[in-house]
Amino acid sequence: MTHAKLALFGCNPMAMEVAHRLRAGDTRFVMVDHDVALVEVAKREGFEARQLDYTDDASLRAVGIGHRIEKVFCLLPEDSENVFLSISARALDAKLRIIAVCQDPQAAGKLLAAGADKVVDPYEISGARTHDLIERPEVVDLLEQTVFGHQDLNIAEIVIPPHSWLNGRPLAALRLATTQNVLLLGVVDVEQGMDLIFVPRGGEHKLDAQDVLVVLGPRGEIEAFRAMVEGNPKST
């Protein structure tokens, strides 16, 4: 039996929601909480859950942080708990990816300082979504039913491999070579920062290995596009 590479801290309703979504995406993970009752609920739902005291480094090691675990979700109800967990996990493993939720917007900065890579503010996002529903209901509807929904329209990222024919070519060349039904939104040059270079404005941008292409499209078309990017231009 292979071990989970993802640890999910918290068995509260929000964590359960995340767990269901992860299971739908065939991701293996282990859930951790200190509340026996909540752990029982998670087990009844069929998740792999453990009751542990996460303030204790030994317990964190027992879950696998420091060796097996690559990603951690901190979904505990209190900001202070998530901060403590982030600090503890970061101390055990410098390369770990830590994603945390925050309740109070002021806690976001503290979580980042504690070592979290990404902070999600559920209320901020929900508020923004609600406001979008007032201002631009068409856009929200469209995305919820396509990209975020169950239809075959997805967002994907494709990393340019070192041996790709695109290496050193301008972005415009890639656009000309694209015959698939995909929409190339832009490229993120990891060396220059995490900002998206938007396609119509960055035609002269030189692509190189490790650049990340951001595309939208049906799954099959994206795969064909990926093959084209990663493969030999003559074969496409």
Binding site: A24, T27, V120, M194
Partner: peptide, 28 residues
């Protein structure tokens, strides 16, 4: 609007394709 669902969705996407999702999220 379901706050927990949004978190779940973001978390799931973030595992697979953090860069693309961030880009789309900023755009929205």
């Amino acid at each position: 609007v379901r706050p927990y669902e949004i978190v779940a969705h973001m978390a799931a996407e973030f595992i697979g394709q953090p860069v693309a999702f961030d880009a789309l999220y900023d755009m929205l």
